[in-house]
């Protein structure tokens, strides 16, 4: 396992409030990593920084074999470099069909001219059908994404993420609004994805985290409080005090 993403010494301040405080995290490839922590710990902000949505005041974010500085890239360049993201609040394009949402995410050329003359190749069609199968939306391909249930939108966004075929998947609270069976399906899917790539999952649900069977990072007040196996971090007195004990 080699290091794919290295966040070191990153700090972010919003109007004088330090949301991320000298944060350092390294993610390997392949790896499955869970990030937990109380509300407001800075979990989402961490993803904002990696994906270029928020620019940190200090620190470094390095990517890949050649240690590319992600802070120098725009959001779309970071995405093209191989970082895919699922948002906390499911954001799909509600006015468009499930099929079109997936087609947009497919790993094809992204320039205006290439997209203008793009026609779905046999492999693209097959991939969309396969993805729809995987996210349980096969019979919904032609429907408006806006008509899906909350859980189905979560699924669609996960499907879009997989369609991008990124090297690093950042998944923010994927299980919210899902039934227990759907949660189980989600953990399976994330574990499978993590066999060949890096996956970072933010989640509150301890049962969900336990099923992921992976290394856990606990964030608190914008910094790493503890890191290790779930059993290891849940025994940590500090973690119990700030998070589990409440």
């Amino acid at each position: 396992m080699s290091t794919l993403l290295e966040v070191s010494g990153v700090s972010v301040t919003f109007d004088g409030f330090r949301a991320i405080n000298n944060l350092s995290i390294a993610i390997g490839e392949p790896e499955l990593r869970a990030v937990i922590g109380p509300n407001g710990a800075g979990k989402t902000t961490f993803m904002d920084i990696v994906t270029g949505k928020t620019r940190p005041d200090t620190g470094k974010v390095l990517w890949g074999e050649r240690s590319i500085d992600l802070l120098k890239l725009s959001e779309s360049q970071i995405a093209k470099a191989g970082v895919g993201r699922k948002f906390q609040k499911p954001t799909v394009f509600e006015d468009q069909s499930v099929h079109d949402n997936l087609a947009m995410a497919l790993k094809n050329k992204r320039g205006p001219f290439s997209v203008l003359i793009w026609k779905a190749a046999e492999s693209d069609r097959a991939r969309i059908v396969e993805l729809a199968e995987e996210i349980g939306l096969s019979d919904r391909l032609a429907h408006r994404a806006g008509d899906l249930s909350h859980g189905q939108k979560q699924w669609l966004e996960i499907g879009m993420l997989l369609a991008q075929d990124p090297r690093l998947l950042l998944v923010d609270e994927p299980a919210a609004g899902m039934t227990p069976a759907e949660r189980e399906h989600t953990t399976d899917l994330l574990k499978r994805a993590a066999k060949t790539r890096a996956v970072v999952v933010i989640e509150h649900d301890m049962e969900f985290i336990r099923r992921l069977e992976c290394r856990v990072t606990v964030l608190h007040e914008g910094a790493v409080l503890a890191e290790g196996s779930l059993d290891h971090v849940t025994k940590n007195q500090q973690v119990i005090d700030v998070y589990l004990g409440r």
């Binding site: 994906t51 949505k53 725009s74 959001e75 779309s76 995405a79 093209k80 895919g84 993201r85 948002f87 954001t91 394009f93 947009m104 995410a105 992204r110 320039g111 879009m160 991008q164």
Partner: peptide, 10 residues
């Protein structure tokens, strides 16, 4: 913003 995270240069 969401389109940017899909890798499109908006």
């Amino acid at each position: 913003a969401r389109v940017r995270f899909l890798g499109y240069n908006v």
